[in-house]
Computed example of a mutant assay.
Amino acid sequence: MSENKGLDIFGIKPVANAIDKTVQKSLEGIEGFLQLTCKPALGEVGLLIQDKVRHWRLCNVIRMLEKAQGKLDFNNDTFQLKSHPRVGLSIIENSSLIDNEEVQDMWAGLFASSCTESGTDDENLIFIDLLKQLTTAQAQILKYGVENSRKIIYPNGLVIAEELKIHCDDIFKLTGLNNYHRVDRELDYLRALGLISSYSGGFDPDSADLVADIHPTYLSLSLYVKSQGSKLDPDEFWKQELITKEQLDKEEEEKAKQEAERRKKENKKL
């Protein structure tokens, strides 16, 4: 791919001298990718290029698209997937405002999972709307909750995450926050979005310790899967790790027996 070809596609010849060489090289690396996956986005990126004030946003978009390209095993000769323009443009617009690596990676995953053979699938609009509302701290809590909770598959095929509790001090370490009121607000918002359980999510005001239940909902599991660049549903994505409801019930019965035995022994000592 020649330098002139790259500049022609994005329409940046008049401002080429003002563009950082590293950025220019990165642009040449993603132009073919966008040409195939979401051609209307070329114009959006072009606007970012021509406005020096938007240089920061342009760099964010480039990094996101490079990540997305990697998730799709991009090949100029055989690549046949496209993103619905409404989805692709929305991801570029929203990801341009994010410079956090973890959250950028989620946006890249959404772009990758948006690419289909028909290019008409707009389901990821649901997940775009959710991700664009998350703070960096919320995204980190959500990611931790999904990755560390066990997933249970029910007889009807739905996958639900098991209860997962975490102390506020551990949330501080995870997010870099240092104010438990702020953490409580972050958890409240995750619950309001339907991303952690509405029944027990967040801090328990009756507890002496600041321990939160952050187990993710099915919507949260789905957002995570899509943000990994996968088109699978949660039951397929975690197929090798799932436990059945029957296995869970047996575990709980065994725990109840062990607890009864422990109490019985303690009572004998009294």
Rank of each mutant, 00 (worst) to 15 (best):
L177V: 07
I128Q: 05
L131N: 01
I196Q: 05
E117M: 14
D122K: 08
S113E: 08
T120W: 10
S200K: 15
F127M: 08
C115P: 05
G119I: 06
D105G: 13
Q133S: 13
A137R: 05
L195P: 09
E123I: 15
G176S: 08
A112S: 11
K132S: 11
G119E: 07
L164Y: 05
L193T: 03
I141M: 12
N124S: 09
Q138K: 06
G202Q: 02
M106R: 07
Y189C: 00
T116R: 08
M106S: 10
K132G: 03
D170F: 09
Q138R: 08
G119T: 08
T120N: 10
W107M: 02
K173T: 02
L177K: 14
Q104C: 08
Q138W: 02
Q133V: 03
Q140I: 11
D170Y: 10
L142M: 14
R185D: 12
K173H: 05
Q133Y: 00
G109M: 08
Q133D: 09
K165M: 09
S114H: 08
L134I: 00
T116L: 07
G194C: 04
I196P: 01
K132D: 04
L187Y: 01
L190D: 09
N179Y: 05
H181E: 14
L174W: 11
R185N: 13
D188P: 00
R191T: 08
D169I: 02
D204A: 08
Q140W: 06
I126P: 01
D184V: 00
L158Q: 14
I160S: 13
Q140T: 10
F127L: 04
D184W: 04
I152T: 06
S149M: 10
R182Q: 15
K165Y: 11
S118W: 05
